[in-house]
Write a protein that binds this DNA or RNA. Structure first.
Length: 554
RNA sequence: CGGGGCGUAGCGCAGUCCGGUAGCGCACACGGUUCGGGACCGUGGGGUCGAAGGUUCAAAUCCUUUCGCCCCGACCA
């Protein structure tokens, strides 16, 4: 491909509204342009990258007997109504009506449609297993699109679905997908890990996420180097640091105007670990007091597992229910349901006295209050692994893929049933598995760049090699460049040649920005000795090779 | 949806407080000189100042409304 014939609008300066590195570099290097919030267009270079990634996805999906199909993105509402998601999902679904007034929506994902197809076509246990996949556009009216192509309202997703007759068979397809995903991300040159995740509203039991470490990520995972425990902090468990039990006599202390843990701990010259943080929430069954240690944050999702739906109490509610403002509430002196973090079972603490401007020192669990004990704190770095006791790390990550065991949630709702060996009618057992190609591209840039631009992993670079003939007015240079271009193309390589009549500096800058892994620089002086330079974009190493042999070095 | 910021030429910005001929750099076009890390000189084209309404002799600037984009948070099937 000739640079002069390709649309590569590079930018010297990044548009002001780009923040994430991958976003800035993709704009500057001419890979993408933004149409509106969360809507991006892929320009020739960007689309080549996506297609390279898609090719890898297809190879690895085919290798586990996945079959590529293509489903509509415009869906009739009825199918989503049958699984209950039409109502369960609120503003995030794009909805519309067709000309006859029929409710429709744009697909956020394709469990419903895939299952609908299976319900029509799979009748016997003999028809399974099946793994169907597509690389298809999804639409979600995101509350907050952000970070360039990392979180958009319209995006491509490789989504596959497995249909099986037993949990064991599902396990096998799940495992095959996990292995395929490892291969895919490895081939794409990413640093990544597989972690336990919260299935959320996908339903079903087990799920894992594939995470690429990057400061640009939106998720955090807790990791144990020793035993390999790794989980999204949304569900990670941890053992907090132990603290020495103080031998306090129980007493009320006057703490005027000291409301937060920070204020009271400063006032009493105690570290926050010696406090109980009391949080009043309103559940569907009335108010509940949640307790965590002063240095911890309440884990909403874990609390939900214990008490179901809940929301924080408003200030007025706190006063109505406990008779005192939020800064001075505690677990004693009332009959509220109490759910406390397990670590509070041991030790003596300071907590609110349920009396204005007073706290109590020397509170002990069981002696002074009764509670239901659960792990309801958010795991933090330097907490300890619940499995092996080693110190945990917490890392910021980009979610690049996920796998879910769906079970029969969708097949039951949509009557995707089959007859087993005994003529019994049973729901198909399903799994669903997603990967975002654009996120792979963005994560690759986040993990591989320098001050000059992108450094693509070879496997997903838009081209394998870029030839830079420095002086386009020199016929010897041009001839050498064209010869090399033909030779490399003949080898089956994707070659970009910067044939523009630009100064050398411009070509160097653009080449580094665009990030093709190898550059072959053809300069007049070297060429007089029959030499060209081969430059590694990542290491910046340059080796000189005879023109005649250059093709063997690529 | 809550909090914050920003909309002036393709991009980056100044001008807005304190109303008075719309500017700078880059990019673009033409001419010349240059030519291995985003060249230099000269000339030139390009803007309903996000939009609507209002105040005023006069609005990029003041007031009201509205739209868009970004960031933090909530949310994230």
């Amino acid at each position: 491909m000739l640079f002069s014939k390709m649309f590569i609008p590079t930018l010297r300066e990044a548009p002001a509204d780009a923040e994430a590195i991958s976003h800035i570099l993709m704009l500057r290097a001419g890979y993408v342009r933004q149409l509106a919030a969360g809507l991006y267009m892929y320009l020739p270079l960007g689309w080549r990258v996506i297609n390279k990634i898609n090719a890898i996805l297809k190879e690895e999906m085919d290798a586990i007997n996945g079959q590529e199909i293509s489903l509509p993105i415009l869906h009739p509402a009825e199918i989503w109504q049958q699984t209950g998601r039409w109502d369960a999902i609120r503003d995030e679904m794009f909805r519309l009506k067709d000309r006859t007034g029929r409710d429709m929506c744009l697909g956020m994902t394709h469990e419903e449609i895939m299952t609908w197809l299976a319900s029509r076509e799979i009748r016997s246990y003999r028809d399974m297993p099946q793994v169907w996949y597509q690389i298809q556009t999804k639409l979600r009216d995101e509350a907050r699109p952000k970070s360039g192509i990392l979180r958009t309202r319209e995006f491509l997703m490789k989504d596959s679905y497995s249909f099986d007759t037993s949990e064991e068979a599902l396990d096998k397809n799940y495992q095959l997908h996990a292995e395929a995903y490892h291969k895919i991300f490895k081939r794409c040159g990413l640093t990544f890990m597989m972690v336990e995740s919260d299935p959320g509203m996908m339903g079903g039991g087990v799920s894992h996420e594939f995470m690429a470490p990057s400061p640009a990520g939106e998720d955090e995972v807790a990791l144990c180097d020793k035993c390999g425990y790794s989980a999204n902090v949304e569900l990670a468990l941890s053992t907090p640091s132990q603290i020495e039990t103080k031998s306090w006599e129980k007493e009320e202390i006057h703490t005027p105007e000291k409301r937060t843990v920070k204020e009271v701990s400063n006032f009493l010259k105690l570290t926050p670990e010696y406090f109980i943080k009391s949080i009043l929430v309103i559940s569907d069954n009335g108010p509940v007091l949640a307790l965590v240690r002063g240095d911890q944050e309440l884990h909403e999702k874990n609390l939900s597992k214990v008490i179901g739906n809940h929301r924080p109490a408003q200030k007025i509610e706190v006063k109505e229910i406990l008779g005192v403002e939020a800064g001075f509430i505690g677990p004693i002196g009332h009959q509220l349901r109490i759910v406390a973090d397990t670590c509070l079972r041991e030790g003596a603490y300071v907590c609110g006295a349920n009396k204005p401007h007073y706290h109590i020192r020397g509170i002990k669990a069981e002696e002074d209050f009764a509670a239901e004990w659960h792990n309801i704190h958010i795991a933090r770095a330097r907490d300890f692994c619940v499995k092996c006791g080693n110190a945990l790390k917490v890392e910021r990550v980009i979610e690049i893929g996920n796998i879910f065991k769906l079970g029969t949630k969708y097949s039951s709702a949509l009557k995707a049933l089959y007859l087993d060996e005994n003529g019994q009618e049973k729901p198909i057992i399903m799994g669903s598995y997603g990967i975002g190609p654009a996120r792979i591209a963005a994560a690759a840039i986040e993990q591989n760049h320098d001050k000059d631009g992108i450094i693509w992993p070879k496997s997903i670079a838009p081209f394998d090699v870029e030839i830079l003939p420095l002086n386009m007015k020199d016929t010897v240079t041009i001839e050498a460049a064209e010869k090399l271009y033909r030779e490399l193309s003949k080898k089956g390589l994707d070659v970009l040649m910067d044939d523009r009549d630009e100064r050398a500096g411009v070509k160097f800058k653009d080449a580094d920005l665009i990030g093709i892994p190898l550059q072959i620089i053809i300069g007049e002086k070297n060429l007089k000795e029959g030499l060209v330079e081969i430059k590694n974009r990542k290491t910046k190493e340059i080796v000189k090779r005879p023109l005649e042999e250059a093709r063997f070095s690529v």
